[in-house]
Computed example of a mutant assay.
Amino acid sequence: MSTPRLRIAVQKSGRLLQDSIQLLKECGIRIDNGRDQLKAPARNFPAEILYLRNSDIPQYIQDGVADIGIIGENTLVEKEKEGEVVQHLGFSKCRLSLATPRGTVYAGPQDLNGKRIATSYPNSLRAYLKAQDIDAEIHEISGSVEIAPNIGLADAICDLVSTGSTLFKNGLEERDIILKSEAVIAASPKIDATRREILDRLLFRIRSVLAARNQKYLLMNVPNQKVETIIKMLPGMRSPTVLPLAEAGWSSVHTVIAEDSFWDIIDQLREAGAEGILIVPIDKMIV
Rank of each mutant, 00 (worst) to 15 (best):
A258F: 12
G171D: 05
A274R: 01
E140S: 14
P281K: 00
T255H: 09
L76C: 04
R213T: 03
G83P: 05
V256H: 11
Q132Y: 06
S165D: 11
R201A: 07
C94W: 07
I286H: 13
N150G: 12
I71P: 02
L24N: 01
P235S: 07
R205T: 01
Q110L: 13
V227G: 04
D67V: 03
I257K: 06
S144G: 09
G90V: 00
V209K: 01
F204Q: 14
N113M: 06
W250M: 08
L129C: 08
I31P: 01
V184E: 00
D36C: 06
L24D: 00
S20Y: 03
G28L: 05
V77W: 10
K169V: 07
S13I: 04
S239C: 11
L219S: 15
L160A: 10
P101L: 04
E140C: 10
L243A: 12
I198G: 00
S208D: 04
N74Y: 10
Y128H: 12
S251E: 08
N170R: 15
V227M: 04
L278H: 09
I178S: 03
A258Y: 12
I57F: 05
E78L: 02
I141G: 04
L202I: 02
G103E: 08
A99F: 04
D283Y: 11
P41T: 06
L125D: 03
F91V: 01
K130D: 13
V287R: 11
S2G: 10
Y217R: 11
E197I: 09
T75L: 15
E174M: 13
S120K: 10
I61M: 09
L52Y: 04
C27A: 05
Q87K: 13
A212G: 03
R213Q: 13
Q87D: 02
T166K: 05
D260S: 10
E275A: 06
L16Y: 06
E182Q: 14
